[in-house]
């Protein structure tokens, strides 16, 4: 295969990697601030996709036009989940949190399956088939939008974390809950916000994916595992790490898919995951402990 195809594949991977990064940034934010892994992150991507589908189906609002509405709904769902479930296991053993979010993950998946059945749904957008071309490379508009919105969202989040008091409070909680409390920061407020933002980011990613992916109940598992991989790759809790990790995984998956075998495209990701876990558990870009 020529360099043209190689470039095209890489570029496609890069664009989708932006969305992976978005899911992973949400996950890593939750982990960084609360020190817990949300095993249901992928299911919130799936919920975002269904919300986008419902907006299009029932209200005729396209995914991009409805992005803000979807994000707000997801933020509220995040809040609900936090108040109803998460808050009860904060400060308890790791296992309880893992199992709670695992339970949530299969519950959401199957509740959606019961409501919407296993049918593959699609969301169309007027921009779906538009594409930009230069030289012999082509990029469809949804990919470009997904990539740009994802990067913008990460940039906004980074600004929030670095430059605002709310963000500083979250970072203080990430460093040490005790110290944050001493400094007069209410950790519960930071936890709530981090969780809701993390869920909203997953939801936004879901919306951005709808023009490119089928919407079905099990679609979240795809992003669940990918998000774990990205987060571990970038260093648990590191936002820039998750961004970079997302882009790398996007490219790796795209290349494995076209050069090795399509049904093995996820295998490359898992193998990288295990290698990183074993040799650099703090992530490629994380601090060495």
């Amino acid at each position: 295969m020529g360099t043209g195809i190689f470039l095209q594949t890489t570029l496609n991977g890069l664009m989708i990697g932006g969305v992976y990064a978005l899911v992973a940034v949400g996950l890593t934010l939750i982990f960084g601030v609360m020190k817990i892994v949300n095993f249901a992150q992928g299911e919130f991507v799936m919920l975002g996709m269904y919300i986008s589908w419902m907006l299009a189906h029932f209200a005729g609002i396209g995914p991009y036009e409805g992005l803000a509405i979807s994000a707000v709904i997801m933020f509220l769902i995040g809040y609900l989940v936090f108040r109803l479930l998460i808050v009860r296991v904060i400060g308890k053993k790791d296992e309880e949190f893992i199992l709670l979010t695992l339970g949530l993950s299969i519950f959401l998946q199957n509740a959606i399956l019961m409501i919407f059945s296993a049918d593959y749904l699609t969301v169309t957008s007027s921009m779906k088939d538009s594409a930009l071309s230069f030289a012999d490379l082509t990029l469809t508009l949804p990919r470009i939008i997904a990539f740009s919105v994802a990067l913008t969202a990460v940039a906004v989040l980074t600004f929030l974390l670095q430059k605002t008091d709310t963000g500083r409070a979250m970072r203080a909680c990430a460093e040490s809950r005790e110290i944050a409390t001493v400094l007069g920061i209410n950790p519960m407020r930071s936890f709530t916000l981090a969780f809701c933002i993390g869920i909203a980011l997953a939801g936004i990613a879901g919306v951005l994916l709808t023009p490119m992916f089928y919407v079905y109940p099990g679609v979240g598992t795809l992003f669940n595992t990918t998000a774990f991989v990205v987060v571990v790759l970038g260093g648990m809790g590191s936002v820039p790490g998750a961004l970079l990790g997302g882009l790398i995984i996007g490219i790796v998956e795209s290349l494995t898919g076209s050069y090795v075998s399509l049904d093995l495209s996820q295998l490359g990701t898992f193998v990288i995951f295990l290698i990183v876990l074993f040799f650099r558990p703090s992530g490629l870009f994380g601090k060495r402990t």
Partner: peptide, 13 residues
């Protein structure tokens, strides 16, 4: 479909 697996999730929670 999905009822029985959903049940697992619910029970776990």
């Amino acid at each position: 479909s999905g009822a029985s697996l959903g049940m697992y999730g619910l029970l776990l929670i």
